[in-house]
Design a protein around this nucleic acid. Structure first.
Length: 269
DNA sequence: GCGACAG
DNA sequence: ATCTTGTCGC
């Protein structure tokens, strides 16, 4: 099933058992993914486009690593944005973390989800409860077993979650090159990601000024694909949606010794 | 056998 | 993911 040797990557004879276990866990996760909107998003998305009746709060997380340091040590950042007529950073926190496993294609969740979940649990209650959604740097159901990082975090933390990836994880006969052609001949900046099986895996969206390289959005948990796409589009000032972009910038800054933690007054308990 | 492989 | 400055182009 896997075209590479995980045992070499993980470096121990038990790795095949680990991957088998992970595979079963992903199959179980997939059966628990909620592809529907749990919340009422009509407060934000009108027929005319994004228009907020009330403030929309979306969080983004990202983990960065340095080559010069211990490969198992990284920095994570979580940010919270308020989206009204504009986008404003209202909360940010970064910290050092250690990962348990190396990156193995299609098993990113087992490397990053535990870290993200721990951080989510440590968020000030007030911040955590105000979140309408969480954006994750990685796929949701656009995954070989329909159980990507965004599903793992969304289910684990019971939060509406959307997966956003910068590169296509090839499944169901999909190939990134074919998208180049579709994009060139398409008038829309949004394309359904449908494989040979006919399953709708997600959407390829041309955001910002990058009309050539799309980002791939997929359902994580408790948010429909339609809403996921609308959310991401409403949060893109550039190619990468702001919550993830800021989380990436802050985690990298923290890696360099700079701290951008931010606590707006109304965020204190 | 060859290619493909989120971060 | 990360190593990396200036530089070509809209």
């Amino acid at each position: 099933m896997l075209g590479f040797s995980v045992s070499v990557i993980l470096g121990n004879p038990r790795s095949n058992e680990i991957v088998s276990s992970w595979t079963r866990m992903q199959e179980d996760l997939a059966s628990n993914v909620d592809y529907t909107d749990n919340n009422d998003w009509s407060h934000f998305f009108k027929p005319t486009g994004f228009q907020a009746d009330r403030d929309l709060f979306v969080a983004g997380v990202d983990i960065s690593f340095s080559t010069t340091e211990d490969l198992s040590i990284g920095t994570i950042a979580i940010v919270k944005l308020r989206r009204d007529s504009r986008q404003q950073l209202v909360y940010s926190h970064s910290r050092e973390v250690s990962v348990q496993y190396p990156y193995v294609p299609s098993f990113l969740g087992f490397r990053e989800a535990p870290i993200i979940s721990t951080l989510m649990k440590h968020l000030p209650l007030r911040v955590r409860c105000s979140l309408d959604c969480l954006l994750v740097d990685g796929n949701g159901v656009l995954h070989p077993r329909k159980a990507g990082l965004a599903c793992q975090v969304g289910i684990g933390e019971s939060i509406p979650c959307v997966g956003v990836s910068k590169n296509l994880l090839c499944v169901d006969g999909l190939n990134e090159k074919t998208f180049r052609e579709y994009i060139a001949s398409s008038h829309s900046n949004e394309i359904d990601v449908i494989g040979r099986s006919g399953f709708l895996w997600g959407k390829a969206i041309m955001t910002g000024n990058a009309k050539s390289k799309p980002i791939f959005v997929s359902v994580g948990h408790r948010v429909s694909l339609i809403t996921s796409a609308r959310l991401v589009t409403a949060l893109c000032e550039f190619r990468i949606p702001s919550p993830i972009r800021f989380a990436d910038m802050h985690s990298r800054a923290y890696l360099r010794g700079e701290c951008n933690d931010l606590f707006m007054e109304e965020e204190f308990p």
